[in-house]
Design a protein around this nucleic acid. Structure first.
Lengths: 342, 342
DNA sequence: GTGAAAGCGCTAACAA
DNA sequence: TTGTTAGCGCTTTCAC
């Protein structure tokens, strides 16, 4: 692997016996180049294995044809679905995408976003981990476009935002359980510091209120979806003097963790009894479990497409005021949410 | 959002009343700057909201501190796990990562790789979709490092490679079924054009041979893991005069698709009978199905870490001959693979 | 300890 | 139709 310097436009120009600018014209398909000359240039390009240096081009033009995507974790199916959609839209717009996982750490979110800005991405799609995005303001002023997805930006930042109807979806799921006769519906949510967790809790409370049911804090448990914590919370819930007959879980990871915990507690929903369950977020194999798991499905790819669509509209020069899109959810009854109260 | 030009080092220099080069020294923590001067510069930087333009820096230095990752599909849990590991290693090495999904399309793989090269990434991690990588040779010569992951590079390319022990794993899974008394073990694999699919089929055949069992082509079905195709193949297999009592599935997607098809065929493995199953690749919820699904697990994150580790060793200047790592698989018995022949 | 000048590879603006 | 010149924002080299 002999390290030879990469050919530049200058090298191509010398080889073809033309001026630098002529090569540039050919490379960029600019009109006004004699066919024969262009052919000579193309021949030299092929001969030398020349490939335009996008970095140099970007520097001169002030645009990089790249965007940055900051999510919580690519390894999470929700975000990987979103990522793929963003990627596809970006590629369709001639843009490449830097991806970074914040791991729900505001510091790392900031670090990633600023690193992308330092690389002068044209735009950003951010699923924020933190609540304060003051650090972004100078970048926005400098012309970098940003779209927030799944969760809104912190105060003082007026940017395009695409959210799911978290409260509406959680409300629909809770109402579904109530509609099947449940009066004691527990809510197992994610860390309440997370916007979506808060919103879903709100939807749960709204549904209870709409049905004339009391809100019982003893039936609510919020926290990160770790096996141990979920196990402890469910143990407590089931030991209540007046235990829940149904459970609403606040996101995909929590649902799966809860099913695993219920399994070990011998309280997994079954055709013959156990807790009824509705989970926020659809997940692969939900349909193959016994009973199949009823969910309130979001559309991660739709979220990514919407966010990327908004971003590229901005980049194309659209100057309407910042938008806030709210994507609908969809309740998918599969069995676990239609079990009657024990 | 008033569009103001971004401040440059020159602006900072003017503001601080020093020369451009002094700002550069401060920004880069170079020694030999008077403390008071440095403070003045830092003050100006904060005041103007200056952030170094990495693109300009890269152009001058000839390194971009970024790498490109080309996988089949970020939305697939196997590749998203790999991605996350690559990301983490990259960030730990001060590098950002461009991610692109080829969708198993050699043309798109090439397009992505070359786009990354045009952006002058320092290195590439590629899960190849195509079999010919001649297009990469000039880039390697030009100094871009590449590591192939999960599948090897096409002929003529001598690069670092990290693979899973596909044949060994498939052999172990097949032998496991044979060990539980099965004599008619079907193999449901992915498109045979894919390296891993071929290798796993080889492992299956080796295990049969080692057990003194005949290889029966009627028991083998290879193709993309689409529901309709898998359904048709399984229908055919089950209708055989001497049908299989066990099934080995060649990857995660195929396993899930097969389970779904068997469900609709009324032949899903159960505690009371049905086909025994071992699947290549672990997947979430495999443990919660009834019966739980026995798998030959790969370690996607380990694959990503190994590939990225190799890449950054190269970028750090390591010049040993190209390596070929083979990562082990792990059989996880959960129930479906221990069912006796019907 | 500080700075002036050159140049990374390209495009924009303007000749010829 | 073609070429020349300047300069994007930075680092490198060398001078003071």
């Amino acid at each position: 692997m002999a390290e030879s310097r990469r050919p530049t436009m200058n090298d191509v120009a010398a080889r073809a016996g033309v001026a630098l600018k002529t090569v540039s014209r050919v490379v960029n398909d600019e009109p006004g180049v004699n066919a024969a000359t262009a052919e000579r240039v193309r021949h030299a390009i092929a001969l030398l294995g020349y490939r335009r240096n996008e970095g140099a081009r970007d520097l001169r033009r002030g645009r990089t044809a790249s965007i940055g995507l900051v999510i919580e974790d690519v390894a999470d199916p929700f975000y990987s679905g979103l990522s793929r959609a963003v990627e596809d839209v970006a590629l369709g717009n001639g843009s490449l995408v830097f991806t970074g996982s914040s791991g729900e750490d505001p510091g790392r979110e900031r670090e990633l976003v600023l690193a992308f800005c330092a690389r002068r991405v044209d735009g950003l799609i951010i699923v924020p981990a933190g609540a304060d995005h003051g650090y972004l303001a100078p970048e926005l002023t400098a012309g970098i476009r940003a779209v927030f997805a799944d969760r809104p930006a912190g105060p003082g930042l007026d940017v395009d935002t695409v959210l799911c109807d978290n409260a509406g979806g959680a409300g629909a799921g809770t109402a579904h359980l109530i509609g099947h006769g449940h009066r004691r519906v527990a809510f197992l949510g994610d860390n309440p510091a997370i916007f979506t967790a808060e919103e879903r809790l709100r939807g749960y409370r709204d549904a209870l209120a709409a049905a004339g049911l009391p809100y019982d804090p003893a039936l609510v448990a919020m926290g990160t979806p770790e096996q141990a914590r979920v196990h402890a919370d469910l143990t407590r819930l089931l030991a209540l003097p007046d235990p829940p007959t149904a459970l609403f879980t606040g996101n995909g990871r929590t649902t799966v963790t809860a099913l695993r915990a219920l399994e070990s507690l011998g309280a997994r929903p079954s055709a013959t009894g156990g807790l009824a369950i509705v989970g926020f977020d659809d997940f692969e194999l939900a349909d193959l479990l016994t009973p199949a798991v009823t969910v309130v499905a979001q559309d991660p790819a739709g979220l990514g497409r919407a966010a990327a669509g908004l971003l590229f509209r901005r980049l194309a020069g659209d100057a309407v005021p910042p938008e806030r899109l709210l994507l609908p959810t969809r309740l998918i009854p599969r069995g676990s949410g239609e079990l009657p109260p024990g």
